[in-house]
Amino acid sequence: MPDTGLTADAAAMIRGVAEGEAGALRRLYDAQASRLFGVAMAILRDRDAAADALHDAVVKIAARARQFDPARGEAGAWLAAIVRHAALDLARARGRETPTDDPTLGDGAVAPEALDRLCETQEAGRLRDCLAALEARNREGILLAFVHGLSHAQIAARLDLPLGTVKAWIRRGLARLRGCLA
């Protein structure tokens, strides 16, 4: 996660885009592109597809900049959410629901230890603790879905579990997270 200084910068740049300030979108792109491209790459694992997703997302960001409300959410998270959903839409269009299309994530998948990186902010620390309290497979399912854009079917194939079990576990895991973070 960006620190609060970067977040304040991102919020100011989004405001610049909303106000039609010359060069504001380019500055926002330069500051955020590698982080956001990383988010798209983790989901699509293909540089051309991830570039398409980031393209679509930045065009959306330009159009929606005025809808960003810093009182209702953090700027970096707002940008990342738009990129994630653009990447997920592409992943869905590429037939993600078929488990046989499951790309082997290999060593690229986020390892459980990666959660240790989630402690830079107070919110991230709480999320890490709540995830740590979940059952390991439950936690892994949530990470594979959020970070790598895997579908229920792909998670089931990867964890070698029945599809129905995976669906139920993820639903339960999310409900527990909500309770834990409340």
Binding site: M1, A33, S34, R35, F37, G38, V39, M41, A42, R47, A50, A51, L54, H55, G73, E74, G76, A77, A80, A81, R84, V110, A114, L115, R117, L118, E120, T121, E123, A124, L127, R128, L143, F146, V147, L177, R178, L181
Partner: peptide
């Protein structure tokens, strides 16, 4: 807002030049 910190787990990567 709850899940946003997880986006930080994806390693940053430089996008293609022409993007």
């Amino acid at each position: 807002a709850r899940l946003a910190p997880l986006a930080g787990l994806a390693p940053p990567e430089t996008p293609p030049d022409g993007l």
